[in-house]
């Protein structure tokens, strides 16, 4: 099921990203928009923010060209295409569990899962480092102080990455995963 959806998603992505007819793009826009609303789920929380952000970003890139060549069709085409792709992707990730897509390879899904969990953990600690710097700084930190901070961040996460890599390797061994 997931794989079929993934195939469908890839097909439509390639299809939409090669579309140029405005009518067709507009039609698709309304179809996707209504389907998204019909699907309305918990995971669509950030929908409007992302939607607006994507639209603005697309305009930022395309408008200068339209203003210069005074052909606004171009900006409209790009806007519709970009938003259609955005909605398509959102629809896909809100229905499909990304990790299950990799279920064909134990190694790959394991790799993705532990990468995500390491990264989330590191990010939390990194945030604490930044807050601690802010908390301890009475004045705006000077360049040298920021460089010391940077060195420490890199040192800390480097050591931690090596340690975590080693620990998980040993844990895997003790559970009998000898190979990947």
């Amino acid at each position: 099921m997931n794989k079929a959806l993934f195939g469908l998603y890839l097909f439509f992505t390639v299809y939409v990203s090669s579309l140029r007819e405005l009518n067709l793009l507009l039609l698709l826009f309304f179809v996707l928009f209504s389907v998204l609303f019909a699907l309305k789920r918990r995971r669509l929380k950030g929908f409007f923010k992302g939607f607006l952000y994507t639209a603005l970003f697309s305009l930022m890139l395309s408008l200068p060209y339209s203003l210069w060549s005074s052909s606004f069709d171009y900006s409209i085409m790009m806007l519709l295409r970009v938003l259609n792709l955005y909605m398509l992707t959102l629809m896909f990730i809100s229905t499909v569990n990304l990790y299950s897509l990799l279920s064909f390879s134990k190694t790959l899904s394991f790799l993705l899962v532990i990468s995500v969990s390491f990264t989330l953990a590191y990010r939390r600690v990194f945030e604490n480092f930044q807050q601690a710097l802010r908390s301890r700084s009475i004045e705006k930190p000077k360049r040298q102080e920021l460089l010391n901070f940077l060195r420490r961040i890199m040192g800390y996460f480097f050591e931690r990455a090596l340690r975590d890599g080693q620990e998980v390797t040993m844990a895997m061994k003790s559970r009998g995963f000898d190979h990947d």
Binding site: I114, F118, R160, A161, L162, D164, Q166, V168, M172
Partner: peptide, 8 residues
Amino acid sequence: GKVPYIAS
């Protein structure tokens, strides 16, 4: 164990 190292 290249997998854990690549992840970390």
